[in-house]
Design a protein around this nucleic acid. Structure first.
Length: 239
DNA sequence: ATGGTCGCGGAGCGA
């Protein structure tokens, strides 16, 4: 909470989407965030998963989860002004071929259905969060080492592409075709020191949101700071 | 090479 509060004070974002909050709604520490002027919506569970949205402007149409999502607290949607925001913590999938991997692919299929049904692509739609999938080899520090492994396998990438087919675009690719942009670095291998990262946290935008997006950046400094998450914050700006 | 480090929660699991 100390680091989150300092980060909010430093960056003054209008909307923040958090993943892996790992706490039930009753225990979520709302007050320090509300004191900074944010409205707070949480969708949590004990120990695992959990998502939250912080917003200076009030929320409308909050939705927790989606049909067929398996009941885990991984999706929190809300309308904020003219933005339809869907904050996602995609199933990690453990390893290719595992039960959880099959869950991941099924979950993504249900998500694509839900977005197709409920998120009109002529509105400003923002899907963001931890997708636990790289789009292509540009998002991987060593594509050969990661070939067909979890977060990089072809079925995962096809599932993500299937979601994009609803009418979404990857915000980063509005601004650059370059590789080497990462949002996650493994704790276990001290990967941040050598920049052995993956880009698995995304902003997926409908055409009106894509047009309104004026920049997106990974806050690597926060990943390099004391007691970090293994993910870096991703910050997108809209006109 | 199946490790390594984290957080949660009070052992072992998921990431």
């Amino acid at each position: 909470m100390e680091r989150l509060v300092a980060w909010l004070v430093e960056h003054r974002p209008d909307v923040v989407c958090l993943q892996e909050t790992k706490c039930v709604d009753e225990k979520f520490p709302r007050e320090p965030i509300e004191e900074l002027g944010y409205n707070v919506e949480v969708f949590g569970q004990r120990t695992y998963n959990g998502v939250a949205i912080l917003s200076r402007a009030p929320f409308d149409d909050v939705e927790r989860g989606f049909p067929g999502d398996g009941g885990e607290a991984r999706a929190l949607g809300a309308t904020i002004g003219d933005l339809m925001v869907l904050n996602l913590y995609v199933v990690n999938g453990q390893s290719v071929g595992s039960d959880r991997y099959r869950d991941k692919l099924a979950w993504l299929g249900k998500l694509a259905e839900h977005v197709r049904d409920r998120y009109p692509m002529d509105e400003k739609v923002v899907l963001c969060g931890d997708f636990n999938i790289t789009f292509d080899d540009r998002d991987v520090w060593d594509p050969d080492r990661w070939r067909e492994r979890i977060l990089c396998s072809t079925p995962e990438r096809e599932a993500l592409a299937g979601l994009m087919e609803v009418g979404l675009r990857d915000a980063v690719r509005k601004f650059t075709d370059e590789g080497g942009i990462y949002t996650w670095w493994d704790f276990r291998t001290f990967a941040i020191k050598r920049n052995r990262g993956l880009r698995i946290d995304h902003f997926l935008l409908s055409p009106p949101a894509f047009d309104a997006c004026i920049g997106i950046d990974v806050d690597v400094a926060t990943r390099k700071a004391e007691k970090p998450s293994d993910h870096a914050p991703v910050i997108a700006a809209f006109e």
